[in-house]
């Protein structure tokens, strides 16, 4: 287990280093991520939605379905914790 863990760790590190070698420079304005949809949100937020925090605008409107999913993740976790930890008898009423 221990050896396997170290091997996998080294493999992950190596794979990531090899992969990141080819990435655009940090902060490069011409990197795909910086010319793709990202900047478009900044350009559009004021006209479309009219709030100042672009992150909030994307979070709660442009990609609100993701946020819904994310809230469901939390909800699932809550249900899961209850499901696992609820005691029979004493907490019967809660489920």
């Amino acid at each position: 287990m221990r050896a396997l863990g170290i091997m996998l760790a080294v493999a992950t590190t190596a794979l990531f280093v090899a992969a990141s070698w080819d990435l655009p420079d940090r902060g490069d304005p011409h990197a795909p991520a910086n010319v793709g949809v990202g900047p478009e949100y900044i350009e559009r937020t004021e006209e479309d939605i009219g709030i100042e925090n672009v992150v909030s605008a994307v979070l709660a409107d442009y990609r609100s379905y993701d946020t819904l999913g994310e809230t469901f993740v939390i909800f699932t976790a809550g249900v899961a914790v209850l499901f696992v930890l609820i005691r029979r008898g004493r907490d019967d009423r809660q489920a």
Binding site: E52, N53, S56, A60
Partner: peptide, 8 residues
């Protein structure tokens, strides 16, 4: 949350 960092 609409104007400064933060939200729900």
């Amino acid at each position: 949350g609409d104007a400064s960092p933060g939200g729900g």
